[in-house]
Design a protein around this nucleic acid. Structure first.
Lengths: 149, 149
DNA sequence: TTTAAATAGTACTAAAATAGTACTGAATTA
DNA sequence: TAATTCAGTACTATTTTAGTACTATTTAAA
């Protein structure tokens, strides 16, 4: 439901490995070996992360990649945005008159609130949190409905 | 980023229209006219919603569709699940030894927490909320990070 | 200075998911 | 019994995503 692509998944794994050894410069091939992901694919993900300024790259022999900042400054929202593109909700696919007449627009405004809320939530979790041991699921409850009361 | 398909979008529009006129039996063709969505597509969405027990159907002449329950009992999570299938996170796409060795698994557990949290949040919003006027964005802040402290 | 190692960028191909359509069958009402 | 309307299935086309290939550029070391 919250569909994130495989590349995003790869990115979190790659970044987590880097976060645990912050000053090590990882070559793409090294990362491919560590994760089991094919080299061209790892390479693609790494390039995307550099463009998003989440990673820095060092070119030439002995080059590679390393985190551009501290793990607690890299948010999950930033990682997802880098891989999945700008946060685009479903754009209005109804004709404008149908939208207004059929009361679709008000719904969409509410959708936007929900999506923004979820984005904010993801922006509050960082790579540093991600490499901590997982918390218990029973604690993971955020009542979004309170926004509507 | 939180990508929901077009059909899910259609579903929210359709359900909102129905929620505003709870006892009216809407024929598929009527709904197509109201929304501007092509009849076969509306029909497809309606059938899916019936299977998910979000809608009831009345067959035969003068038949159609209507809500199976009260708007405040139909959650956004239920609507999304109906259209997008069971909430499937990205399944582990790394080899098992790489996963364990490369510390990917701990990350995935954290992913699961985040996804579950977002699901819970969506489960707290109902169709009744969705047809209310939208709330201001500045209020829409849910600090997920608190889970990690 | 040359060679090897490594990233940068672009473009392409293949596979998967999604959206939309068509058609046949079954139920209900008039 | 005829007309209306939903039920179900299967199919096709489109779009998105994943993955690959290739060339250029940069840097370290021999």
């Amino acid at each position: 439901m919250l569909r994130v692509g495989k590349l995003t998944d790869y990115a979190t794994v790659i970044l987590s490995i880097m976060a645990k050894d912050k000053h090590h410069v990882f070559a793409a091939m090294e990362m491919a070996a560590l994760t089991g992901i094919a080299l061209p694919t790892v390479s693609k993900v790494l390039k995307i992360l550099v463009n998003a300024k989440i990673l820095m790259s060092v070119r030439g022999a002995k080059g590679g990649y390393l985190l551009a900042g501290e793990p607690n400054g890299i948010t999950v929202a930033a990682i997802i945005s880098a891989l999945e593109g700008p946060i685009a909700l479903t754009e209005c696919s109804l004709s404008k008159q149908a939208c207004t007449a059929a009361s679709g627009c008000g719904i969409r405004a509410n959708w936007h609130v929900i999506n923004q809320t979820i984005y904010n939530a993801l922006a509050s979790v960082t790579l540093a949190d991600l490499i901590k041991p997982a918390v218990g699921l029973e604690e993971a409850y955020v009542p979004l409905a309170s926004l509507y009361q």
